[in-house]
Nucleic acid binder design. Structure first.
Lengths: 194, 194
DNA sequence: TTCAAAGTGGACTGTGCAGTCCAAAATGCC
DNA sequence: GGCATTTTGGACTGCACAGTCCACTTTGAA
């Protein structure tokens, strides 16, 4: 297992990305190893070579990959929420991203189906949310030093999660638009102090 | 097919409730017909007698049952949000319910895994959300005739959905507490007019 | 009481799919 | 160039589990 030649690393990467796309499109329950094999032009033995513990192992890598992507796609705004203009740019980015992917939400799928089952996946998801919330809280402190930053950040992450959940459930983007917009507007008007 | 004797109706009901509980506890992916058979003291033939189209048919009935329960458990407050006291009682009820069930959220499981796949399940879920939102919007009109009731209701439902999603993902009730409390507080302070 | 329909028990089947195995080919280090 | 290690191909195995089948029992209406 130690030592991954460049070729091997590339294959592994191809598997993770291919699997991630399949899962996003069809849901984890409807994607088998044979689908992944076909989509990534690999063989059964390769799948188990790079992920010795099988499917669970692979889903772990997929979850880590997707979680990373979620944060990356919010950059550079997320790590620089130092003005209202940046806040609005961030909001627009988030909304645009969800509007584009519509129901194909990587986190909803992985969270609901695997979060409870596998503690390792759960750790990845919660770690991602923690980082996300820290970025947001930093932003709150930058524009509203008087506010309870953690509380506001909790509210904002919750609003996004709710918007995403409702988007998956009803294919309606307005829950996200309204929830996020109102939460930011509320902060702007003057947030609850500590 | 029509014509269900009292005994038959009771068996059917037992199956639905037993299956619902199993799915809540272990997630739809980890519950097989044999589990349901064992938990409800029935036989394979009974399962297919009452749900001729098999598992999908059964999950449909389970989804309808769970959706109904979600609304029922918010009564009598939900349909009478005519004072701030009622609003707070409703909020407390919602939070208490989720705090009690913790990660065993019937909707998260069904929504994420089946919502996208089966249009009939989706119809049940969206119908439930529509009714829910109508109740809330009626409540908004009762206490804040000047507000954009639909917009506020969208925000509130989104906040609850987000709280529930984060509860499942992180086992932390605060997203729901804070999200719902802030949204109501925001409405109370004076909501966005039309 | 009778008998048709509703309800029940549980063995059996078929298949989809995760995971195994072994042998061959490519790669990299000395 | 030669040998160990990594990478790859794909056939094979085993099982979990949805769905089938048929024989038997109970129910209820006339």
């Amino acid at each position: 297992m130690r030592a991954l030649t460049p070729k091997g690393a590339a294959t592994r990467q191809r598997i993770v990305e291919g699997a991630a796309k399949l899962i996003r499109d069809h849901g984890p329950a409807n994607v088998g190893l044979d689908d992944i094999r076909a989509a990534t032009a690999t063989s059964k033995s390769q799948l188990f070579h790079y992920f010795p513990d099988g499917k669970a192992d692979m889903l772990l890598a997929v979850a880590a990959h997707e979680a990373e992507l979620v944060l990356e796609e919010q950059q550079p705004y997320l790590s620089d929420l130092t003005s209202w203009a940046q806040w609005e740019a961030w909001r627009d980015r988030v909304i645009a991203r969800y509007a584009a992917q519509r129901r194909r939400c990587p986190l909803s799928a992985l969270t609901a189906q695997l979060g409870l089952a596998d503690p390792a996946v759960e750790k990845i998801i919660t770690g991602m949310y923690t980082r996300w919330q820290r970025y947001v809280a930093d932003g709150v402190r930058a524009v509203r030093p008087d506010a309870d930053a953690e509380r506001v950040a909790t509210q904002l992450i919750g609003a996004i999660a709710g918007g995403a959940t409702m988007l998956v459930a009803t294919d309606d983007i307005r829950y996200l638009e309204i929830g996020l917009t109102e939460a930011i507007e509320n902060l702007r008007r003057g947030a609850p102090g500590p």
